[in-house]
Write a protein that binds this DNA or RNA. Structure first.
Lengths: 186, 186
DNA sequence: CGTTGCTATGCAACGAGGTGCATAGGAGGA
DNA sequence: TCCTCCTATGCACCTCGTTGCATAGCAACG
């Protein structure tokens, strides 16, 4: 029930079309909230009919026209209200953890390549995050970037991503060492 | 599409009823894969009609009778096959991260109690994990517990949970320090 | 006896989310 | 010219998951 709010935040940071939002959900926002373009278009329709966002037709040359969405007053109110109500769920779905526990009843060695693949994904993301951090949050003092609060809050969320990836890489190394123990007949 | 597999893993570790599975999904397995009892009963029905699990009526005294499920041959095969196919999604849904980025357009101070509440939840979970680790994976050598592989794999997953909670607590402290910076007008 | 609470199973309805497909304009290459 | 790819929007269908409710046995308490 919070995709609306993720979209509101993204549109506050910068107005854009459904397509552009979908691209943002493949990076930045997408690192802690995933959404497909179908979902985004559907929710944007609802938000528009609820008056949360305004739409503006934008003609483009060299590419199809688009609809640019921006946050309307009721949308800002809804976002503000959401910030004040508690968030509980944080539902978790770690396929890999289930697989690791399940490996005891199959072939533990078969998991090694899978775990290594996940490790690679996480090192790639970490590299990507660190590059983004150096680019957007280097020592230069804000310059023409976003406001201080916006900027610092984006930065602390990014640091969370960095911490998460580092933790995962260290844990996957632990998992690999454990799996290796079975091969060498520990 | 992996609740079936999570149930298979849990039933491999120990056969049980839908109700008992629901309890397990409130702890242990539930720490990395959530499921409600309605979902579990529905999926168990399907797994039974697919021949993945066997059912046995168990009469109980002092409490209602139950159906005890255990993994059948096709279920073991399905679990083994799943272990060999790659897992990609790992879809993420971090309300709190969205809220933190959104706080720039509302009242950042309003988030402090929310973040502190989350921090408390994570310290509680960490304490709980560490207690479980000391209980189930203390220095005593396996004793009458599960097999070595099963035991070690359960342990490495638990260590993952511990690492995750520690990372979250450290990050939430970072978030709180950042939010405090706005109050003191850094 | 009625109430509360735990064990145990289940249905109905709804909304969220994913898969697959359709459409359409334009760019660039074979 | 056809093919492929990128931008851009959208529908239809189906599954997953949540919410709310219903049933029923038994225990403990007042």
């Amino acid at each position: 029930m919070a995709l609306e709010h993720a979209i509101l935040v993204s549109l506050q940071e910068k107005p854009g079309s459904g397509y552009e939002l979908a691209r943002r959900f493949e990076r930045s926002i997408g690192y802690f909230w995933t959404a497909s373009h179908q979902q985004i278009y559907r929710v944007l329709k609802r938000m528009e009919s609820d008056g949360w966002v305004d739409v503006r037709d934008v003609q483009q040359y060299g590419r199809p026209d688009k609809k640019e969405y921006s946050v309307a007053e009721p949308g800002r109110d809804a976002l503000c209200a959401w910030l004040h109500e508690p968030t509980e769920p944080e539902s978790v779905r770690h396929d890999l953890a289930v697989k690791i526990r399940g490996a005891a009843y199959g072939d533990p060695a078969a998991l090694i390549s899978e775990v290594e693949r996940h490790r690679q994904t996480h090192t790639d993301r970490l590299t990507h995050y660190l590059a983004g951090e150096a680019r957007d949050f280097g020592e230069h003092p804000a310059a023409d970037g976003p406001l201080d609060a916006e900027r610092e809050l984006q930065h602390v969320v990014l640091r969370g991503g960095v911490a998460y990836e580092r933790m995962m890489i260290a844990w996957l190394d632990d998992v690999l060492a454990t799996l290796a123990g079975f091969n060498t007949g520990h």
